[in-house]
């Protein structure tokens, strides 16, 4: 099962992932269409900033022990067969309990529709829109094994480069 991983050293803070996410969750699925839609489509990834100058995209981790799913008082949050924790907007009553219990702060509140929303890993796409949009590949869509293998390779080549001086 693939997940969205963040390579912390790569984020440029350009917000491209946010734009791509909002567009993917629009009706028109185009930027120029999305910006004129009502209600305005919402991004589900948030580019944050930490002193002195760290930038990072934050999005739903689809936690194994998803606190939002268990806390939901209306049965609107469930885990799909693919392991994605999704919010069923039809069942959501906008009580914001999930917002209150999410330790990552990645559940959004849609004020016009009075529903919560979050990353759904772009079910209509092979690769989530944020990942495709990231110009520096700070966001990657891989299995845990692939991702850790890549981290190992990168560390190994750095060591080799270091030894070569």
């Amino acid at each position: 099962m693939k997940e969205i991983f963040v390579r912390l050293d790569r984020c440029m803070g350009c917000h491209s992932c946010e734009i791509a996410c909002a567009v993917e969750h629009s009706k028109s699925k185009t930027l120029f269409g999305a910006i004129f839609e009502h209600p305005v489509p919402k991004r589900r990834v948030y580019v944050e900033w930490v002193k002195p100058d760290h930038k990072l995209p934050v999005l739903c981790r689809h936690c194994e022990d998803a606190p939002c799913m268990h806390a939901c008082i209306s049965g609107a949050i469930r885990r799909t067969a693919e392991g994605v924790v999704i919010t069923d907007e039809d069942k959501c009553i906008g009580c914001w309990t999930c917002v209150m219990v999410c330790p990552y702060g990645v559940i959004g509140r849609h004020l016009e529709t009075h529903r919560s929303y979050r990353c759904d890993r772009c079910p209509d796409r092979d690769e989530p829109a944020c990942v495709s949009a990231c110009p520096t590949k700070a966001l990657v869509y891989q299995t845990v094994d692939e991702f850790s293998a890549n981290v190992r390779h990168a560390a190994a080549s750095e060591m080799v480069a270091g030894e070569r001086g």
């Binding site: 268990h70 008082i73 885990r79």
Partner: peptide, 24 residues
Amino acid sequence: PLIPYIVTQKKTAEEIALMGQGPY
């Protein structure tokens, strides 16, 4: 917590059933 929706008649008893919804 969904019983107010029974009062408003916006949801039915089936719709607020626990089994098969959310994590259940």
